[in-house]
């Protein structure tokens, strides 16, 4: 299993590639079918934001270990315009693109961990993680 996987995002076609690769990697890690869908959907949102607002960038997928936990890390990077007010962008319904404004806050709900850093004029980086559920809690 490749430990790291990098998908360049240059057009909307790449969004499909990114979420398919993410799903495949997550499947190998043993996520349930519902979780696979959650992960693929979150990747789709982040990749689409890259295409929409930064034109190009990349999604990288890797495996995370923490103690005996295993998970998937999805990172979306671009050198686009950046986000001036992250707090605002993370609110349900806030959109500068006349859209639903659910991509970022929604992706956060779909994953276990979510982090976003952005600098105006430099770019945006979103890091998300989801851990394989160890069913005995």
């Amino acid at each position: 299993m490749a430990e790291e996987n990098c998908i360049p995002i240059n057009s909307e076609i790449d969004i499909v590639t990114a979420r398919q690769k993410g799903r495949a990697m997550a499947a190998q890690l043993g996520f349930s079918s519902t979780e696979l869908t959650l992960i693929a959907t979150a990747i789709s949102e982040i990749a689409r934001n890259i295409v929409e607002y930064a034109r190009e960038g990349e999604i990288s997928l890797s495996i995370a270990h923490e103690g005996d936990k295993q998970g998937i890390v999805v990172m979306g990077c671009d050198n686009g315009p950046g986000i001036p007010d992250i707090k605002l962008a993370m609110q349900d319904g806030y959109s500068t693109g006349k859209s639903l404004g659910l991509g970022l806050p929604g992706a956060k709900r779909l994953m276990d961990e979510f982090e976003i850093v952005s600098e105006v004029g430099r770019g945006t980086k979103v890091t998300m993680k989801k851990w394989v559920q160890n069913h005995a809690r």
Binding site: S33, L36, T37, L38, T41, E45, R109, L110
Partner: peptide
């Protein structure tokens, strides 16, 4: 709409 997809959509807020 598949069960997983429906679940994911409502989580996303769609």
């Amino acid at each position: 709409i598949q069960p997983e997809v429906a679940f994911s959509m409502v989580q996303l807020g769609l």
